[in-house]
Nucleic acid binder design. Structure first.
Lengths: 221, 221
DNA sequence: TGTACATCAGTGAACGCGCGTTCACTGATGTAC
DNA sequence: TGTACATCAGTGAACGCGCGTTCACTGATGTAC
């Protein structure tokens, strides 16, 4: 196969890697000009193929965009999973790390982020996209389950799903407003990470968790 | 002036209301097809004028989009102000009502919402837009100030700016994920309003506010 | 191991279309006197 | 009150352009035997 690292073919008739190359091209174009600013034809051009070639791999522009968004969710899930690290070294530390990973992803992958959350793709008509998105959320939910299980005995055990939705929403709001990687980012008198960490700490305190989140013993499996 | 309620002129040479009519047309088109899916030419057509007419009022498509976003922020501010109602009948009630108004705006005005937050307009190059956006945020901030002033004497008084940023982010996250008025809305096993209210209550509890937020006396002016 | 052949993944030319933009123009409106 | 005139806010025709899409085609690849 004669294609190089950038996904540009070098001379052969067959590209060999066109689907990936088109998605990468779309991503680059989204990064430059927003989700609105990429066209099928331009993606083909920047992958070095004729304008008819993409039709072998995607029905239309929207299908390409949906593939990009789906790949984004998969990478997002992988990042969250890595950040969670199955709750090591302790649940509260790992929990906060997941939130940081959320912000880091938004900051480092603005094109993915807007394809995933701001491209207007309807989730109903993209079941694969919905599944990928739910898998990413499942990481936050699993982390919340583990944290909820750690609630002190004297307080009512918080519903993990609600916790997860609150944390997701807070992270998403901060990411969208203050930690986005593009020109629409709003200025903030502190780091987005600090804002999120403080918010999560206050929220957990409100649920009855002790202020010092470091447990004496290892968290329950 | 011979133009009717829909902003369509009825026969005269001069439209008389074209600027407003173009913004309304853009809003309708955004509602139908997302911020990406409207063109200068189409806005002109649906306002009933020639494709050259918009140039008398807007330099280009982006300037029209920015005007729409700015008008959106102004209406948003008005809604938040009305919801806040200067803290009546009491600060905590009014505070929660502001959050609800955030969600209601997102739900009822998806076109404005996406023009304001998801159109990728850089805030740096649109000072008027930034100002309009900050005015809307100022309502949340003023409400937070008043609430922070009500903190019980035995707890450290919370920084109102941080509070405002947390509430804004949480509201924005919930609105963007679960209360949007378009097809990208995610399903939720409860109402977005309930999710937000619960989140705010837990957050305020974490700051040391009493669980029952109704004060015995009227809040301080 | 070679060969014939089916299939895959691309080409490139062509098309109709709508967009953005410019231009000289003109009808309507407002105002100075 | 009338009139002349400047200005405003539109027209409509024209243009070049790039996009989406189709089509018959063809080079490359894989596989049956």
């Amino acid at each position: 196969m004669n294609w190089n690292k950038r996904g540009r073919r070098e001379g052969g008739y067959h590209h060999g890697n066109l689907k990936e190359a088109l998605m990468q091209a779309a991503l680059d174009l989204i990064a430059q000009k927003g989700p609105a600013g990429f066209t099928f034809a331009e993606a083909a051009r920047s992958a070095g193929v004729s304008p008819a070639a993409p039709y072998r791999h995607f029905r239309d522009r929207d299908e390409l965009l949906a593939s990009v968004a789906q790949q984004g969710f998969e990478q997002f899930e992988a990042r969250l999973t890595a950040a969670w690290d199955d709750g090591r070294p302790d649940t509260p530390t790992a929990f906060q790390r997941v939130g940081k990973a959320y912000l880091a992803f938004a900051r480092q992958n603005p094109a993915f982020y807007s394809a995933m959350f701001e491209s207007g793709l309807p989730l109903e008509s993209n079941p694969a996209l919905l599944v990928a998105s739910e898998r990413a959320f499942a990481i936050i939910r699993a982390a919340s389950e583990r944290l909820a299980a750690m609630a002190p005995p004297n307080v009512p055990r918080p519903p993990a799903l609600m916790m997860a939705l609150h944390i997701w929403s807070l992270s998403h709001g901060i990411a969208s407003l203050f930690a986005r990687g593009d020109a629409a980012r709003r200025k903030l008198p502190m780091s987005a990470e600090d804002l999120l960490e403080a918010g999560v700490l206050i929220y957990l305190k409100g649920l009855g968790f002790p202020t010092d989140q470091r447990p004496a013993a290892a968290p329950p499996r």
